[in-house]
Amino acid sequence: MAERHVTVTSEVGLHARPAATFVQAATKASLDVTIAKGAGSPVNAKSILSVLALDVRRGDVVVIRAEGEGAEELLDRLAGIASAP
């Protein structure tokens, strides 16, 4: 299982635009991808409902996990979106 720990720096947190961009990128992948807030329970990173309900705010650390071929590249991409200001 590959994972990335990322600090969210967007002023609005992982809401609306950043959340939609993140979920869209995750959905394009065939791998299962999860996102968790800190040590919280992981949720499906392909569900906008799940990601919005996580309520990730500026300064929160999220943990993104995926497993399988291409997981590292996918996680790099998602980490880039999640950490974008």
Binding site: H15, A16, L49, L52, A53, D55
Partner: peptide
């Protein structure tokens, strides 16, 4: 499930969420 002043998400018992 999420309540901001400017937006909210309500989820029905069937799991469907509306923003």
């Amino acid at each position: 499930v999420k309540l901001h002043p400017h937006a909210f998400v309500v989820v029905g018992d069937d799991g469907r969420g509306v923003l």
